[in-house]
Amino acid sequence: MPGIHEVQGEIERGPSLRKLGFDSKNLDFWDSGFVSFLIRVIRICGERDIEVTGEGLPEGAQRLIGLALAVPERREPGKDEKITPSLVLVTGGRVMKIWASLMETLTFVGETATAFLRLFGGKARFKGSDFLLVVQESGAGALPIVSLISLLVGLILAFVGSIQLRMFGAQIYIADLVAIAMARAMGAIMTGIIMAGRTGAAFAARIGTMQVNEEIDALKTAGIPPMEFLVLPRILALALMMPLLTLYADLMGILGGMIVGVGGFGIGLVEYFNETRKALTLANIWIGLFSSLIFGVLIAVAGCLRGMRCGRSASAVGDTTTSAVVTSIVSIIIATALITIGCDVLGI
């Protein structure tokens, strides 16, 4: 069988072709590829006012062609036109997009704040069992992974610190380093990142899927505000669980440091413990807990915001989850920076 371009070339070269026919006497097998080839030939002929007779073709192929050509091809204006956007257009579009997403975020934060006001006014409603379920899923469920990660972070901190400290024979300060780093920042940050990937993503995917299934619409028309019913319990649960998990992570991190200090550098167990206690002021712990509370709210808000703004398809749920995790992690790091600078200014 000749290729379509060959045929097209033949038709164009041929002196004023009037009529085109087919001879398929020796053809004993054909498939959809054959039919689509024929249709293209017929289209090319149609553009040049050449008459086509299908009589020489197998009967089945003739019928299929008839079916395919029965409904005219739909050409949507603007669908296949490709506009090459200018730099101004692209920049403008980006700015508009950023502006829209900023407004969206602000609206959501506003709605959340109103929902909280209603909660404190005793008017908001959500099911207590929902709240407890989220607490269980995001709190107790996260313990194993938080244990593992924090222990390892403690180990890493101790090893990295020891390289420098050993040069001065100051191995004992590994205890100070690990305790302060874990309590003040690393405990909260690591827990935050774990929770962003684990719980924030789950919130976004869960609420996003509800959006796809029209479940959110069903809540709205049933007069149950989704902000109160879905978002409030999640923010509350995470704001409660994050500090608890962080406290636990601090402990695990210190334990990790202790393993390295005691096992690897010959510091006595009691010695290490006492050094840790000396270094660990309450202010450090409070700063860590305060950060974790902020992170909890940020993660829950990011997850719920993305979920609530989810489109209506499976791929939209994927995008939603991705953007929830990215937003959470970025906002955690930015918040840490702000808190650290703030503490420095305040001299804590």
Binding site: D130, T209, M210, N213, E214, E215, D217, A218, L219, T221, A222, G223
Partner: peptide, 20 residues
């Protein structure tokens, strides 16, 4: 609007039952 909707029942195309 909520007052009006209180007297309206809606069945969605996909069912939209709350899956939890």
């Amino acid at each position: 609007r909520q007052r009006v909707l209180r007297h309206v029942g809606v069945m969605y195309q996909s069912g939209a039952l709350w899956s939890s």
